[in-house]
Design a binder for these strands. Structure first.
Lengths: 376, 376
DNA sequence: GTCGACACTGAATCTGGGT
DNA sequence: GACCCAGATTCAGTGTCGA
């Protein structure tokens, strides 16, 4: 239980990082306002859905559906819900790093209001993600389609924000080497994963599955990043963040939820560094300029490069530029120029003849890179 | 081309139904205001998405993506888009029958604003439906998840609206006898279905697949209903409506789209009556009250009914009520009362003794129904 | 006629680091 | 903030052409 932290203590603390890996007890907006500017990498928010339920719902066998009827899900009007949404999103915006991103999950009851508010506040939507449930609750009355999904919005703090973390290559590799789509399939949280109290009753009515949070965190953060959840509830975000080697910050008002989340997170074993290594693509590799190949002798001045079908050719010059029919420039510029295009990746466009076949000069760059790696 | 209809002609027409199965040329809101109150059963709306694109986007092979940059998709601000959305939704509300429903399709660029506006105008969301694309365009820069779906909102005109059409059993039967979910899988519109002009260029940048409209119309309307599309475009709604034996009304500003849609709809052959019969379950079956059984002599006053295990018993009264130990009421009420439950389906709870075994009284209702069916 | 290679396309808010 | 420029980046199709 060491990770619980009353908001008053946080405000009194002189230590700047005392809020990391803690659950702050208190109101969401007040607690956010106690955190430093631009200090967290990712926010995952599962706000109240503002369900507007009529009476009780019975299954065909007359058993009663255990609906979400908690006090924290009651709002007087759409206006009240919008004001609440605006307040916590504004507080989140200040706490989020410029390179950070925010996730918000909801259903049709609230997600349209959340999305519109995000846009009004100048957040920039990157994707809307659909969580398709393998095992959703049926529609008992037969008057609608089975409500089989929830929606997450992923956004950066403004339209110009560059440099947010998206582990594209890891996602693609995890998805059988095709791009990860915006529709994800996961079971709802049940079985051993579902937190129960002493009477076997579920601790929290809307506990999210860890698999969902794992994909969110793996996609949009790096090990060591700080993940904030302003509606911490049963602490799924904290548990998964800890397991995945990230730091967490939770905000929660209700002591029962804090107790359950705290114990749950305590029991989590973080994965090791090897398991947490994120697969990256070329963008992350050491930059090797073309003239390094010339300087190292892998390419010789005067050597002729061609494209893969020998339609175009160019001569290598000693300064690391290439020339063709009066034109000259970088491998990229000249590649674009001879093809009449705006841009070109010279590394894959230009080839050299190794005596047997044409090979892209990118292969020579790989040789340099592996030499550099050995030298480390 | 007979189905095109300038808005001025519509206003001048004395014939009240002259707008049915027509494409009205003109502004969406102005045209809607020329239609009678509460006159259409279903509205399907595919409004501009308000895409905010930067410069050109190139594929990895340097080819240029043909983006949606049409004038009709340009708005000055979110406020302008919201005002536009409010105006056409209000106009739709007046034209829609109290038992009607509206569908709106969009992407994350606009759907949150549309959904919030629907709620602000007191529409009642029944479902949000995800159209999962089998073949979406990839994310070429690897900076986001592949945007692989669009969202539809299905709503009734107000929270208390009852009696809207939802062909639950037909949807369930069409879905291998499990409830139709809120996530639907369809390819994007391509191949022969995609309308092309003389030069082989697509007529409309965002033509929707007919399969999507077919499910919408089959789920939420009946043969003979009127389906309105205020952003008619290439006329998919009209073509599918006609094929499925529904009437359509289209509103469209651009003559090129009207010409293409008009010719397209002209070529559609409607399905026959037999193919259009909507599969119905018990909900749609002829209602048979318990007293009809008594009146018909299948159940006799004074007869004893029991539950399947003979734990409870009740005596049938001539008025079609049943009584047990001082309590009396409908078969449903009394069934609930004796079990101490809030509700009970008396048709399956109460049984009669046919001399050999106990059989639910629901079987007698089936006898009545088949007699009624023969009589038609 | 068949098969393979290649070109083309779809509602897209689509780079990042350095000067 | 504007500009420059290296260089990284695509899935499920349909249609065409030539062998």
């Amino acid at each position: 239980m060491a990770s619980v932290f009353p908001l008053a203590d946080l405000k009194a603390s002189a230590k700047p990082d005392s809020w990391i890996d803690m659950i702050i007890k208190g109101d969401c907006v007040a607690a956010l306002e106690a955190l430093p500017n631009h200090s967290v990498d990712v926010i995952f928010a599962d706000p109240p859905y503002n369900l507007q339920l009529g009476g009780m719902l019975h299954r065909p066998d007359q058993s009663v559906v255990d609906a979400v009827d908690n006090e924290w899900d009651q709002f007087a009007s759409f206006e009240a819900y919008d004001a609440f949404t605006r307040a916590w999103l504004l507080a989140c915006r200040r706490v989020l790093k410029p390179t950070g991103t925010i996730w918000v999950i909801g259903s049709y009851h609230n997600i349209f209001r959340v999305g519109a508010t995000l846009q009004d506040l100048n957040f920039w939507i990157l994707n809307d993600i659909v969580w398709r449930k393998t095992n959703p609750m049926p529609n008992f009355k037969g008057r609608r389609f089975q409500n089989a999904h929830e929606t997450m919005i992923w956004a950066s703090p403004n339209a110009k924000a560059k440099g947010y973390t998206f582990n594209y290559d890891a996602m693609k590799a995890a998805n059988d080497d095709v791009q990860m789509r915006s529709d994800w399939l996961f079971p709802i949280c049940s079985g051993n994963e579902r937190l129960k109290d002493g009477d076997g009753k579920k601790v929290h009515p809307t506990q999210k599955p860890e698999a969902l949070l794992a994909r969110v965190i793996m996609a949009s953060s790096r090990p060591g990043d700080i993940i904030l959840d302003p509606f911490f509830g049963s602490g799924t975000t904290g548990a998964v963040a800890k397991r995945l080697g990230r730091h967490f910050v939770g905000i929660e008002r209700e002591q029962d939820y804090i107790d359950a989340a705290s114990a749950r997170i305590e029991a989590v074993q973080p994965l090791g560094k090897a398991e947490l290594t994120i697969m990256t693509g070329k963008k992350q590799e050491i930059r090797v300029a073309f003239n390094v190949l010339v300087e190292s002798g892998l390419i010789k001045p005067g050597q002729v490069l061609t494209d893969s079908r020998r339609r175009y050719s160019a001569i290598v010059r000693a300064d690391g530029t290439v020339a063709s029919g009066g034109e000259s420039g970088s491998i990229h510029r000249l590649g674009a120029r001879v093809q009449g295009l705006d841009a070109c990746n010279g590394w894959t466009f230009w080839h050299f003849d190794d005596g047997q076949s044409l090979r892209p000069i990118d292969e020579l760059r790989s040789v340099i890179r592996s030499d550099l790696a050995k030298a480390e």
